[in-house]
Design a protein around this nucleic acid. Structure first.
Lengths: 341, 341
DNA sequence: CTGAAAGCGCTAACAA
DNA sequence: TTGTTAGCGCTTTCAG
């Protein structure tokens, strides 16, 4: 029984290391603090003992003094759409690259956004990223009051005072419309997501604008009840069953576009792109597979993620700056669901 | 300038609330501690002031005393496979349900698992879930030494002393083989993932076993370099190009099975399931879409997640128990890529 | 460059 | 039930 405290509950602390190395605990602290001064002898001795004792500074205790937790809160919904896996991949990667950690909150199952935000704030995170459909002013207020930099990702909520990093969804919608017009389609429809989501709204209005500019009218518009495959399938079926069938549809995301393609081909016997064109949004990996080869509008996800983290880290080191808005351009990815000339 | 400290850096603390409410700080503490005793008057008064001042206990300071952070570390790789989005969805949801928080670590980009584990441990998390291909004994040692309950999810590493919750991959492989045999296929092949991954190994060996029991030999076996669509496509192409073409393939996951289906149909002109059968593993949502209608082996993901969290929470409250292993059964999901009788 | 001492915000005995 | 007191493990002035 030579081991320290019993029960495995307690860890080795800086005091243990200091005692064992015959130095003060401040010395230990300095060795583990990046910008601090310590002689190389000191450093070597402390590091050796730490290694032997398997010492590791306690982040909680540290943050109590420094007021930095190195924690970035991520509030996310949409755990059904594969784009969000890529987004999460990029975010966690970027966050880790900078020596930060991700505290992930799932608000997709009707969990209250406010409540989650409150919980997350108990950890006094250094920054927060929100990528959920609903974005409340109360949340951004909370963050501002507490001095926590906040970026709203891939969403452009009105009356919320926060940093915003998003794709230019309106321009993306226009891109879709112009491609379709150029390729000779005339009777177009839009398949949006839930009516309140800003991305769906923006993509739809850009689409309508460009149509109007060309003297065209959008034939119809349907809204899926959720941003998923089944909901998209249902919405498109409604669209194709109704009279005044369109020659082309622009869908608010790739999942719904894939559903549109399937419904058109399998249930209505339409040939794509000859009889019917489909454009999606996002460019998820599956959109490129053989059965789909979906023509789509791509958001510059990696750039968006990078900018978000940049904005966040900038504001963590220099607080009290006014919110920034970064809107990044989309691009057309041509594949085989729109005819080629 | 009536506000407290300047700069927005500092938050309102229990001291502020205590002063304002004319009580002691322990009183404040008690009001925010679930099992503590406080008169309803006290509680009301403190709560009112807290509300007004927007007070919230500091989780870091709290954890310093309690030795509980309510943080669960999740180490994940495979940010390319959509199953993991569902898994993450279930995990974060289950974790939040129990008043815990998720600290997510991405080790998919060649980031060192050890290094990540060390970082994550600085936060003295209450428990840890690892769902990454590689699982080192060093990591489980670290956890045991620090008394941190660990569950290895959907993987069954050898010589690692930790809790394991996984599907019965061997039995799953057998299920696939028996279905194929029953439906009259004879010349079968296996498309595995990277050679070292236990899931791929187990599924393959279960498949081989059941084949052998029926007096059959697996015709061939190819391994994809990674668990993705493109890698699967490449592997299957190799398989179908080689001589001795199989009548059926069992793929280690749905993504590769989808790739197999696409390669077979589009590049080799095979009719499925007449000329060629494909079975996948996982039952991801896309496997059910019209172009695929993939017959597959389903892992009971929700149950696996639930069990993982159960094991974790049990061991958090009652440490020093020996590791448990839970192996859950898979089931066959029949769709259209294996002929029906 | 190094050590002593004073907290960071909170909880947990212990008295009252 | 409530207040007082002593830390949790660490960083950070401030002397030396």
């Amino acid at each position: 029984m030579v081991t320290g405290k019993a029960g495995g509950r307690s860890r080795v602390t800086a005091v243990d290391v200091a005692r064992e190395a015959g130095v003060s605990i401040s010395a230990v602290s300095r060795v583990f603090t990046p910008g601090a001064s310590a002689s190389s002898k000191m450093r070597a001795k402390v590091l050796a003992v730490s290694e032997r004792l398997d010492y590791m500074p306690n982040a909680m205790a540290r943050s109590l003094m420094t007021n930095r937790t190195h924690l970035i809160g991520i509030i996310m919904a949409n755990f059904k759409n594969p784009v969000y896996l890529s987004i999460l991949d990029s975010f966690t990667h970027a966050i880790q690259q900078r020596g930060l950690r991700s505290l992930l909150f799932n608000v997709s199952r009707g969990d209250d956004l406010e409540a989650s935000a409150r919980q997350i704030m108990e950890y006094s995170i250094d920054g927060m990223i929100v990528s959920a459909a609903s974005m409340s002013p109360l949340l951004s207020d909370q963050c501002r009051r507490r001095g926590i930099p906040l970026v709203v990702f891939a969403r452009h909520p009105r009356n919320v005072k926060a940093n915003v990093v998003t794709a230019d969804n309106v321009a993306g919608g226009r891109l879709a419309a112009r491609l379709l017009i150029e390729r000779g389609y005339r009777r177009m429809a839009y398949v949006g997501g839930p009516e309140t989501v800003s991305t769906s709204l923006d993509r739809g209005s850009g689409f309508d604008q460009a149509l109007a500019e060309a003297g065209l009218d959008r034939v119809r518009r349907v809204n899926a009840t959720d941003y998923g495959y089944d909901e998209g399938y249902e919405a498109v079926s409604r669209l194709l069953n109704g009279g005044d069938r369109p020659e082309a549809v622009f869908c608010a995301n790739d999942i719904m576009a894939m559903a549109a393609l399937d419904a058109a081909r399998y249930d209505f016997g339409l040939r794509v792109p000859e009889d019917f064109a489909v454009i999606g949004f996002d460019d998820i990996p599956f959109a490129a597979t053989k059965p789909y080869r979906l023509t789509t509008i791509r958001q510059p996800m990696d750039a968006m993620v990078r900018q978000s983290i940049d904005v966040l880290t900038d504001q963590i080191s220099a607080p009290d700056v006014s919110p920034v808005t970064r809107i990044l351009p989309c691009s057309v990815i041509e594949r085989d669901t729109v005819r080629s000339s």
